[in-house]
Simulated assay, not measured.
Amino acid sequence: MKRNFEVLLRDNQLKITNPRLSVLRLIADQQFATSQPMLEKVLGNEIDRVTLYRILKTFEEKGILHKVIDLNGTANYAICSSNCSANAHHDEHFHFNCSNCHKVYCMNDFHLPAIALPPGFLAETLNLSITGVCKDCNL
């Protein structure tokens, strides 16, 4: 499903700029979460490191992207579901870290079981990660 990124930016009260659109298109075109170093490498001639960092931070704050930390501690980014907003992320799904190619996949089709916390506890973030070998590496 292709999303209209200009509408997405406008709906989030963000100025439509080529760097923002480039980041969204690059991340959306991947079948896996995209690392910040990969974004820097691909977009380096178009966007400097500080601008990229600000774009990613803003997108995460607005509920446009969610951040996933890989096995090496590197930030990776994926497009949020349309249910996410600046007030609440709703990306409660597993993330699969391939120990061979180091790609991080969002496992959107697998739903998490309800988790009952003890009285007085309030969950703000849920991060469940699976480590193994992805289908491409397991050939």
Rank of each mutant, 00 (worst) to 15 (best):
T17W: 07
L126Y: 09
I47C: 03
A28R: 01
V68L: 02
Q31G: 12
L126F: 11
I55M: 04
L65H: 02
L128S: 06
K57T: 08
K135I: 13
T74Q: 13
D136H: 14
L9H: 07
A114I: 12
I27A: 01
I55N: 01
L56I: 02
R20N: 07
L71D: 06
H95S: 05
I47D: 00
G120M: 04
E46K: 15
R25E: 15
P119V: 08
L14D: 04
S99L: 12
K62G: 04
I27W: 00
S22T: 10
C98M: 05
P119R: 06
N12R: 12
H89P: 03
K62E: 07
Y105E: 06
L139Q: 15
K62I: 04
Y53S: 13
A28K: 03
V7M: 12
R49D: 11
Y53R: 13
D48H: 13
P19N: 10
M107R: 09
N76P: 03
C134E: 05
F110S: 13
M38L: 12
F121K: 10
H111L: 08
H102I: 02
N18P: 03
A86P: 06
P19S: 09
M38N: 08
T17V: 05
A116H: 09
N87R: 13
M107S: 09
F5P: 07
Y77Q: 03
L56Q: 01
F32G: 00
P119C: 01
H90M: 14
P118K: 10
E6L: 05
N45S: 15
N18H: 11
Q31H: 09
S22K: 15
P118M: 08
A33K: 04
A75C: 10
T131F: 00
N97P: 01
D29A: 15
T34A: 06
E124N: 13
V50Y: 10
A88E: 14
Q30R: 13
Y77F: 15
L39Y: 02
R49G: 07
E6W: 04
L139E: 14
I79E: 02
N108P: 01
P113Y: 11
N87V: 10
T74S: 10
G120R: 06
G63H: 00
L71W: 00
Q31K: 11
N138G: 03
P19D: 09
K2G: 12
K57E: 05
T17H: 07
V50K: 13
K15P: 02
Y77G: 01
K2C: 07
L26E: 11
E46D: 14
K2N: 15
P37Q: 05
P113D: 13
Y53L: 10
S85I: 02
P37H: 03
M107T: 07
L122I: 14
D29T: 10
C98K: 02
V23S: 01
K2Q: 14
V104N: 00
K62C: 06
D70K: 03
N4H: 10
L112T: 10
V133W: 07
Q31E: 11
H95M: 02
I64L: 06
S129H: 04
I115C: 07
E60N: 09
K135M: 11
I16E: 12
I130L: 15
A28T: 05
C134L: 06
F110T: 14
A33M: 12
N138W: 09
F5R: 08
N72V: 01
G132R: 04
K67R: 15
L8Q: 08
C84Y: 05
F32S: 08
K15Q: 14
L128P: 01
R25Q: 14
N12T: 11
A78S: 10
L14Q: 14
E124W: 04
G73W: 02
